[in-house]
Computed example of a mutant assay.
Amino acid sequence: MTTEESILNKIQILITNHFQTPEEAFEFFDQDNDRKLNKGEIVKLLKEAEINGFLRGIVSSKLIEGYDKNKDELIDWEEFKMAVSKIKKA
C-alpha cells in the first residue's frame, strides 16, 4: 500500500467510524463555519485520522493542491466530496 493509499484509508476509517455522513465530518472540521476547510482545519482532520505529525503539514498541502479546483487554497464542500469519492475507490 502506498503512502497516499494509507493516508486515504485512515481518513476513510475516521469518517466511517465517527460520523454518519461525509457532510457531518466536513461540518465538524469546518470550525469557522465558512463551508470551507482551511489548512489548519485539514491538519486537525489528519490528526484525528492518526496521520503522523511530521506528515500532516505536507499531506494537508498536497490535499489542497490536489483537490482545490478553484485555487482559493481552501477545500469547499464540493471539493471535499470529490476527495471522499476518491477515498471510497481507493
Results as ranks from 00 to 15, higher is better:
M1Y: 09
T2W: 07
T2A: 13
T3P: 00
T3Y: 14
T3G: 08
E4G: 05
E4F: 13
E4N: 09
E5H: 09
E5Q: 15
S6R: 11
I7D: 02
I7Q: 06
L8F: 12
L8R: 04
N9C: 14
K10H: 05
K10L: 11
I11S: 01
I11M: 07
I13E: 07
I13T: 10
I13H: 13
I13A: 05
I13G: 03
L14E: 02
L14N: 03
L14W: 03
I15H: 04
I15D: 00
I15A: 02
T16H: 11
T16C: 03
N17Y: 11
N17G: 02
N17F: 06
H18L: 09
H18K: 15
Q20T: 09
Q20D: 07
Q20H: 13
T21C: 11
P22G: 05
F26K: 02
F26N: 00
F26I: 11
F26W: 05
F28W: 10
F29W: 08
F29I: 04
F29R: 03
D30P: 02
D30S: 05
Q31C: 06
Q31R: 14
Q31K: 15
Q31D: 13
D32C: 13
D32E: 08
D32M: 08
D32I: 08
D32Q: 11
N33D: 10
R35S: 13
R35L: 14
K36S: 05
L37D: 03
L37K: 03
L37V: 05
G40D: 14
G40L: 13
V43G: 01
L45H: 01
K47S: 05
E48P: 03
E48Y: 15
E48M: 15
E48R: 15
A49G: 06
A49L: 00
E50A: 05
E50R: 14
E50P: 00
E50L: 08
I51Q: 00
F54P: 00
F54Q: 10
F54E: 11
G57S: 09
G57L: 09
I58M: 13
I58A: 14
V59N: 01
S60A: 15
S60F: 07
S61W: 09
S61I: 06
L63S: 03
E65K: 15
E65A: 14
G66L: 03
Y67S: 07
Y67Q: 04
D68Y: 03
N70L: 14
N70Y: 05
K71Y: 04
D72C: 01
D72M: 02
E73W: 04
E73M: 14
L74I: 06
I75S: 02
I75A: 00
D76W: 05
W77K: 07
W77L: 15
W77E: 07
E78I: 06
E78K: 15
F80I: 06
F80D: 03
K81V: 14
K81N: 08
K81S: 06
K81L: 10
K81Q: 12
M82L: 14
V84W: 01
S85R: 15
S85T: 07
S85P: 01
K86T: 00
I87G: 01
I87T: 03
K88V: 10
K88A: 12
K88I: 07
